[in-house]
Design a protein around this nucleic acid. Structure first.
Length: 859
RNA sequence: GAGGGUAUAGCUCAGCUGGUAGAGCACCUGCUUGACGUGCAGGGGGUCAUAGGUUCGAGUCCUAUUAUCCUCACCA
């Protein structure tokens, strides 16, 4: 089917149209199909609050490349899409929206709030999905999931109950990170540590028996209110005598013990530490070991509790000032030192988190981690690149219990019920519970599960093939998926974890909202097309390494798309109206046809190998090079004189052009799906989609190594001629005769028309016998070439140049010869390598001989 | 404190199981060759961070050093 194509490729006129075409054909949909092997990827679900950013573009492009490749390679491929309800982030946005209207959560109540939240999700939840579609993602949208949908909720309840029944989930008072602004517990992963300037207040705690003071230092003096001991190291000779005594807590007057605990570092500070079990994780541990009371001195919003009337209601930082002033007044403050230390802040709102004892739900991780570690150690799950396994082990071998409850409403509700009468607790999958002891209806835990990281629907498509994600979430997400997978399915959740790097800004900085250096992928798509963005993201990178975004790189990829487009314009220009993509190659292939066919065949082989090894960047580069150099710069140019000449050769050239283009389109399709599909549709009238065609594989019948080698000689000669003419500043318009002296006249005969067209030869004379007077001398390993250019020839210069070339070849011969006469090399190097060296030496010697002949002829 | 990444052409980066260094951009010189100037041809430019080691042979493997970035833990 022939039609006119525009001179420039216009992605905007193509992409949406093609995407609808795919959707209409339902080509992304996967079904259980016993006759095919499955290949599954589960998308790392983007937050519903999210906008597509470069990280998504990278992550999803890689996934789509793999999915499209596998789909074309005969697998039943499922790319399972979904979105994450993202408890904290989403709830924060909704609360913010409500605040603008003057509404609070207290006013709406739980039900009212959730109604709003779902409405919010209806409104914004599809934004990111539509953006993924712009990228060309071939997800099975029919199976789209939401982490808060009924199926997921059910699975979460199931998981929770199973863990609980096995004793892996417990509820208890522990130190957690509390955000006084979001008013919820957050996990360690949600805390960002920042270096902040602060003070180190040196305090004096008087011994109760009046025998003196213990001096210690703190950065958070307000927590003094909750001190229940002072600790020293048991080995510390300085303080041994105080252990067992008590000190009187300044300002509070409480009598607290001096305990000995190895946690205390004798080198740091004075070697004395105040212990505040309710507000410091280490102190909490010390408290457990010494049976110390736990005194919480702050409210949810980080104000001092009513137990300390003097400071009650003060914000923690206000209280800090007040307490320091009072300590100073009371003579307890020894010194105030400037001190810079790390302060934990809430990932969402930036508020300083308050470590705080709180009643929360936890998952015991130590036992769960074991099979998950084993799964990777045994190689059942592989990380690509491998080095990320270390990160994983690092994390998993030192894993802490995981706080999973959040004081939020938007999320999976904890399936635990409490009896207000007798205090009984029941954990059940059922939506309500009756107290087994007193028969009363029980009250469900108001908290939600902070489980955005767990996507239990995975188990229905188990085990999946590849997980594609950035290294930044190996610990939080990947590790938990492996844990859950091993625990519930006793099977790995995926075979391979493909780790990619971060997308950075052009200066190598992390893209972030606060810096305002983010690049919007949708704008890039708008400007250069999705294919260009995809190709930029896929090429020139290696797994696990970060990459910088640069407009220039995308532009180069856009140019590449345009190049392909114009190659298509060329082949279509001469195509008859009723042309279709040929199934087979013609019988009488010319030398250059076999050359290009054979090279394409090799390319197919390599691309498959690279993709299997997840070397997407290498594969992309090879396809790019083939299309631009081999197909466009050489093969198309080679067909021009044939097409001009007409006849069978012209027809064959056309057929091979289209046939090779079809192969190119298939190989490139996973990387640039839109333009390849568009071109395919333009070339092929049958209406079958390119995305369902078979991915090319190596075919022995298409390998022509001898013809390849033979034609390379012609290319080599053409290059040498062009080179020489450029050096001599001979314009291409200036044609001249070309005399060729070669032992391989058969091959060179086949190149005549190419020397004329591509090397400015007016006439080609092979093995004339005599060297024409006043010629440029050009030498390749397989031929001597002479171009009569009387007025341009300076005999002396020619001699000098030939001698220079001779020296270079001799140097080569010297190096290769030395290598080959090295016994170690010949004995130990692989046969193939030795052979290659011998061939190189032979070729260099031939060239040398030809140079010498030429020198003789000149003088 | 523990672990890890990176260091290759002016810039951004490739370089698979070790076999005499590549791309894109930039630069220089030519080109209205009827697909494409988002193009064509030709060219310059690298002691592959440093010092050792293994090897017939190292950008590629090992050790140390320097620079730089990151992750985790966190000291009161």
């Amino acid at each position: 089917m022939k039609k006119e194509l525009a001179k420039l490729y216009e992605p905007k006129q193509v992409e949406d149209k093609i995407y609808s075409y795919w959707l209409k054909g339902n080509y992304f949909h996967a079904e259980v199909n016993p006759s095919k092997k499955p290949y599954t990827i589960v998308i790392p679900p983007p937050n519903i609050t999210g906008q597509l950013h470069m990280g998504h573009a990278l992550d999803n492009t890689l996934q789509d490349i793999l999915i499209r490749y596998k789909r074309m390679s005969g697998y039943e491929t499922l790319w399972l899409p979904g979105t994450d309800h993202a408890s904290i982030a989403t709830e924060a946005k909704i609360v913010a929206e409500m605040r603008k209207e003057g509404v609070t959560k207290d006013m709406t109540g739980r039900e009212g709030f959730l109604k709003r939240a779902w409405a919010w999700r209806e409104k914004y939840g599809s934004t990111i999905i539509n953006q993924l579609k712009k990228l060309g993602s071939s997800c099975d949208w029919e199976r789209e999931r939401f982490t808060l949908d009924e199926g997921c909720s059910k699975a979460v309840r199931e998981v929770f109950v199973r863990y609980y029944e096995k004793g892996l989930i417990y509820r208890g008072e522990r130190i957690i990170n509390w955000c006084p602004r979001c008013l919820t517990a957050i996990s360690n992963a949600e805390v960002i540590y920042e270096e902040q300037a602060g003070h180190f207040w040196h305090l004096r705690y008087p011994l109760t028996d009046g025998s003196g003071y213990l001096e210690l230092a703190t950065t958070r003096p307000e927590t003094l209110l909750g001190d229940t001991a002072v600790a020293v190291n048991p080995k510390d000779e300085r303080y041994k005598k105080y252990v067992g005594k008590t000190v009187t807590l300044p300002l509070v007057g409480r009598e607290i013990p001096v305990v000995a605990d190895p946690y205390v570092d004798t080198e740091f500070g004075t070697g004395v530490v105040k212990i505040t079990p309710a507000h410091d994780p280490n102190d909490f541990e010390v408290g457990l070991r010494h049976n110390l009371p736990v005194i919480n001195v702050m409210t949810d919003d980080a104000k001092i509790t009513d137990d300390y009337p003097k400071y009650a209601g003060m914000d923690r930082f206000e209280a800090r000032k007040a307490i320091v002033a009072d300590l100073e007044a009371g003579g307890f403050l020894v010194e105030t030192e400037d001190y810079s230390h790390n302060v934990g802040t809430c990932e969402r709102c930036g508020t300083t988190v308050e470590p705080r004892v709180s009643l929360q739900w936890f998952v015991k991780m130590a036992d769960l981690a074991k099979p998950a570690i084993e799964a990777v150690r045994s190689g059942k799950i592989k990380f690509v690149p491998e080095r990320f396994e270390k990160n994983y082990f690092n994390w998993m071998e030192d894993i802490r219990d995981w706080c999973i409850s959040r004081q939020l409403w938007w999320g999976h509700r904890i399936p635990a019920f409490y009896c207000d009468d007798c205090g009984e607790t029941v954990v059940t999958k059922e939506p309500s519970a009756v107290c087994p002891k007193c028969g009363k209806t029980m009250r469900q835990d108001p908290d939600t599960l902070g489980w955005p990281d767990e996507t239990p629907e995975l188990k229905y498509f188990y085990p999946t093939s590849t997980l594609v994600t950035g290294w930044d979430i190996i610990t939080f997400w990947v590790s938990r998926m492996i844990v859950a997978g091993m625990e519930h399915m006793h099977e790995r959740p995926f075979e391979t974890v493909l780790i990619h790097g971060l997308m950075r800004d052009p200066n190598g900085l992390k893209m972030s909202k606060s810096l305002g250096n983010g690049v919007d992928p949708l704008e890039v798509i708008d400007k250069y097309g999705a294919d260009a963005l995809r190709f930029m993201v896929a090429s020139g990178t290696s797994p696990g390494n970060d990459m910088r975004y640069s407009d220039d790189k995308v532009k180069a990829c856009r140019n590449f798309a345009n190049k392909l487009w114009n190659a298509t314009r060329f082949i279509m220009m001469n195509l008859p109206d009723d042309f279709a993509i040929p199934e087979k190659l013609p019988e009488n292939l010319a030398l250059e046809d076999k050359w290009v066919v054979s090279k394409l065949n090799t390319l197919a082989k390599e691309v498959n190998e690279n993709l299997e090894k997840f070397e997407l960047g290498v594969a992309a580069q090879k396809v790019y090079d083939f299309i631009w150099d081999v197909y466009c710069d050489w093969y198309i140019e080679l067909t021009k004189p044939r097409i001009n000449a007409g006849g069978e050769s012209a027809e064959n050239a056309q057929t091979v052009l289209v046939w090779a283009m079809a192969g190119i389109l298939k190989l490139l399709h996973p990387f640039m799906p839109f333009i390849t599909e568009e071109i395919w549709q333009a070339l092929d009238g049958t209406g079958r989609p390119l995305m369902l065609e078979s991915f090319p594989v190596y075919d022995e019948k298409l390998a022509f190594p001898e013809e390849e080698e033979a034609f390379e000689k012609i290319i080599e000669a053409i290059r040498a001629i062009r080179n020489r003419r450029a050096e001599m500043n001979v314009p291409p318009s200036r044609k001249a005769e070309l005399f060729i002296e070669t032992a391989d006249s058969d091959t060179y005969e086949k190149g005549v028309m190419f020397f004329e067209r591509l090397a400015s030869a007016s006439e080609v004379i092979i093995n004339h016998g005599a060297v024409p007077e006043g010629s440029l001398f050009i030498v390749t390993p397989s031929a001597r070439l002479f171009i009569p250019m009387d007025e341009l020839i300076d005999r002396e210069k020619e001699l000098a140049r030939l001698n220079k070339e001779k020296a270079a070849v001799e140097k080569d011969i010297g190096i290769i010869g030395a290598k080959l006469s090295n016994e170690g090399f010949v004995a130990k190097a692989p046969e193939k390598v030795v052979e290659a060296e011998r061939a190189k030496l032979a070729s260099a010697r031939e060239k040398l001989a030809k140079i010498e002949e030429s020198l003789a002829a000149l003088s």
